[in-house]
């Protein structure tokens, strides 16, 4: 019963996204702008570097950025801040008066809301990449990249809810969204493939959950057939989902407890 409720929440949220085409146009437009800028940077870098950088050709880098940017740009940028504000202001209270846990419904609606935007971005991004750089290198790894992108989004949304739940205790926790995003940008490999980082950085970044949120699907999209990445992502996603649920459960106890 709970699962069907969550599925319904996700589809309703997806419908809400589709009911606001203006916003969708802005986010796809924004996505194409970033993708165009960052892919141009990397393509000219590859060209200046004898055709490839850390094993990535210009074509591979283009598909890398198309995937890595989509996983992040399709989401609400200030998710941590917005959820944190709703916790801090008490706007979340009515959700505690439902038979399904608030965090479950929230995760489901957020994922549901992102998916249509994600699809739109990916279609636009794939079109752009095919146009300026050419078809993807290996269809097998592209096949893996699609589920990987969804996992990346789910993992990221769950992690952001776990961070936002700190607002049950600390008033300014919601400002963490800025820092969080910078980690995704660099340690997560969104702007820069992890192989390009200095070796010590790279090995640290591979151990962090952020690599599951951008690098993994981007690596697969760039033509490397590495199914192990999906397993790592699945693990991190599970960890983040458990963390979000646990943080919310503790936070709700804190919210309702006597002083």
């Amino acid at each position: 019963m709970t699962w069907s409720a969550l599925a319904r929440a996700a589809t309703t949220a997806a419908r809400r996204t589709l009911a606001q085409p203006g916003l969708a146009v802005v986010s796809v437009g924004f996505y194409l702008l970033v993708t165009a800028a960052v892919t141009s940077l990397w393509r000219s870098a590859a060209e200046a570097h004898g055709g490839e950088i850390a094993g990535y050709s210009g074509l591979a880098l283009t598909w890398y950025i198309v995937a890595s940017e989509a996983t992040v740009v399709a989401q609400r940028v200030r998710l941590i801040e917005e959820v944190g504000t709703e916790i801090g202001s008490g706007a979340i209270e009515p959700e505690l008066l439902r038979p399904v846990a608030a965090v479950g419904v929230r995760l489901a609606t957020e994922i549901g809301a992102v998916l249509p935007r994600l699809v739109a971005c990916l279609v636009a991004g794939a079109g752009y990449a095919a146009l300026v750089a050419g078809a993807p290198i290996a269809t097998g790894s592209i096949g893996l990249a699609l589920p990987s992108i969804v996992l990346a989004v789910v993992c990221n949304i769950a992690a952001q809810h776990a961070v936002a739940a700190a607002s049950f205790w600390v008033r300014d926790a919601k400002s963490a969204w800025y820092l969080y995003h910078k980690f995704v940008f660099i340690a997560g490999g969104m702007l820069i493939p992890l192989e390009v980082l200095p070796e010590s950085f790279e090995s640290v970044a591979r151990l962090l959950p952020f690599s599951a949120m951008a690098y993994a699907p981007a690596r697969l999209a760039s033509g490397y057939f590495e199914p192990g990445l999906l397993i790592g992502q699945a693990l991190w996603t599970a960890v983040m989902l458990v963390a979000a649920v646990a943080m919310f459960a503790r936070g709700e106890r804190r919210l309702t407890a006597a002083p």
Binding site: L41, S44, A45, A48, H49, I53, A54, S175, Y178, L179, K182, F185, I186, L191, I192, V196, L197, P198, F201
Partner: peptide, 24 residues
């Protein structure tokens, strides 16, 4: 937050040119 943002940009360019050297 703004400073973090700007410092992340510095980090990005430093890391980028570390590997790439020079571009156009």
């Amino acid at each position: 937050a703004m400073f973090v943002n700007d410092i992340a940009w510095v980090a990005f360019w430093v890391l980028f040119f570390e590997e790439v050297g020079e571009v156009r």
